[in-house]
Structure formats: structure tokens, C-alpha cells
Design a protein around this nucleic acid. Structure first.
Lengths: 137, 137
DNA sequence: TGATGACTTGATGAATTCATCATATCGATG
DNA sequence: CATCGATATGATGAATTCATCAAGTCATCA
């Protein structure tokens, strides 16, 4: 956790978002969210993400350093979990925001395609959002 | 807005969080949140943040590029606003998370100080969180 | 004790972001 | 048109993050 006790909250917030600012780390957090209530050992994260072990470890270290996850070692196994339910909420709201915004873009694209002329540029229906959820659901 | 239509959602999410990953940008978003319903020209952001004009402009450009804010130019004035209410929610949840976590740290510190012995290391009550909200409230 | 599985850390070059100054653009006005 | 206020962009070096490989640590077991 960012431990400079005198830092303004907006700096700490920014630091939190830095911790979330990488695709692999989002994937990890989504897997942890989906696994809530069950143990989530590194081996599971390795299988789900498909990352190489040292690469995943580096990202897990970043998540730990930013206070986003917690880890518990039991013998050979280290189990990870979200540090707080708010993390899952952040991801959920980000999802809402992005889907709303992408949907808006899609609608704007369809509206533009509905305009007369301008040399039909192709089927806009197939130009919709190709973003999928990455299997976290 | 990140416009690669084929990107997985976790990549787009990470990109969104990148946009939020700087203190100055958090400050801007907090000011926009507090100003909701009113116009928020750059001049107001300049005054509130105390940043130099070109520095603020760079950050605003980043926020625009990440789709987090929208801007409208009217004559000499450019007015900014949040691109979506979800942005304010993200900040609110981040705040909840951080205050919970800092509070937890504070409690753990107090608990440690309540433990017997270990050469009283000072008044833990004054070691509480010094993080303040940066005036966004 | 050595070997092995599980996981982490160290090191380093590439890529990106940040900080900051110089310059440019936009719109209004005399 | 030149000037000015408001705002944005370009450029560049420093700092940080990312990607990736090598090596290390922890715990178990024969």
C-alpha cells in the first residue's frame, strides 16, 4: 500500500489507478473476482491467464505493492484474493462505462451509416464493438 | 476513446485506468465532478488546480484521448465536463476503498501500539492518516 | 541432502509517461 | 490587420513502466 502518510488523497487515488493500468493485471483481478469465496492459487492464475510464471509474478507483485490484492502462503502454495470488494466494483463500473461508451460509438456509427450517400463504406452492423470480455465472466 | 475495435475489454479497461493514473488528472476530474451541472471552463480548472496552462492542457488532452472528458469550444472559451457519470463513481469508489484501507492501517497501527511492550515507539494516535482530500469536496 | 515443484526476485533494454518550456492556433477586438 | 486573451500542440530529456530472461527462495519428498 502506498504508505506516504502525508500524501493528498488524489495522489493515492492516482497511485491506485496506476496499479490497475495494465491488461494482465485487469485479467488477474477479474479472475480473482470470479473466484471470490474460493481459493485462488497462483497456479490457477497461471492457467487462466496463460502468462509465463515470472511475468505473472511481476504483475502480482505490482498488485500487492499497490494494495489491490493480498496473498497468503501455505506450504508451496500462495493464494491470492482481492484486498477489498471495492476493487471488483471499480472493474464493474469501468465495464459499465466502457460498454455505454462503446455502445454510444456504435450508435453514432449506425447513425452515420443511416445518413444519405457518402459512398456506402460497408456494412456498419459488422463494424460494431468487437471488444469482448476476455473470458472473465 | 481507445478506438481499436477488436481489443479485449480488459485492455480497454486498463487503458481507461491509465487515463486516471496521474494526480493532476484526478484533481481535474474531482473539480469537474464538483462542478457538475455548471460550466467548467479551462480558466476555472487553471485557478483550481494551480497548474501552468500548458501543463494543464497536456493533461486535458490525455483525458480527452482516454475518453474520460468531453470539451466544447465557445468562442475563446473551452468548457470541459465528465464524459460519463461512471467516472465520478470510479472516483467515489476509489475513495471508499482508500479510506477503508487507510482506516484499516490506522486500526492495525493502534492495535499494535496497544500490545504490551516493544519499547513504546511514540504516540500512535498522531501517526494516523495524514492523507487529506485535496480540497475536492 | 539433493532434487523438484511452486513462486518470487533481479537485471536490463525497450517503450511509455511525465515534466517543462517554446511555439502555435483560435476567436474577439480595435 | 495586428494584438491579445484563451487554449492547445510540439519538442525533448528525465523518470517510470513494461517485457523478458536468468537466477533465487521456499517447502516438500525420496
Amino acid at each position: 500500500m502506498f504508505s506516504d502518510r502525508e500524501a493528498p488523497l488524489y495522489e493515492i487515488k492516482a497511485n491506485l489507478f496506476k496499479g490497475l493500468a495494465h491488461p494482465a493485471r485487469i485479467r488477474v483481478l477479474e479472475i480473482l473476482t470470479a473466484s471470490a469465496g474460493q481459493s485462488c492459487p497462483v497456479s490457477h492464475l497461471l492457467a487462466e491467464t496463460g502468462l509465463e510464471a515470472s511475468h505473472l509474478s511481476q504483475h502480482l507483485a505490482t498488485l500487492r505493492r499497490h494494495g489491490v490484492v493480498t496473498s497468503v502462503r501455505t506450504a508451496n502454495t500462495v493464494v491470492y484474493s482481492l484486498a477489498h470488494p471495492a476493487v471488483a466494483e471499480l472493474l464493474a463500473i469501468a465495464r459499465t462505462f466502457l460498454l455505454d461508451t462503446l455502445a454510444g460509438s456504435h450508435e453514432r456509427l449506425a447513425a452515420a451509416a443511416a445518413l444519405p450517400d457518402v459512398s456506402a463504406v460497408g456494412a456498419p452492423a459488422s463494424a460494431g464493438t468487437g471488444a469482448h470480455d476476455g473470458g472473465a465472466r
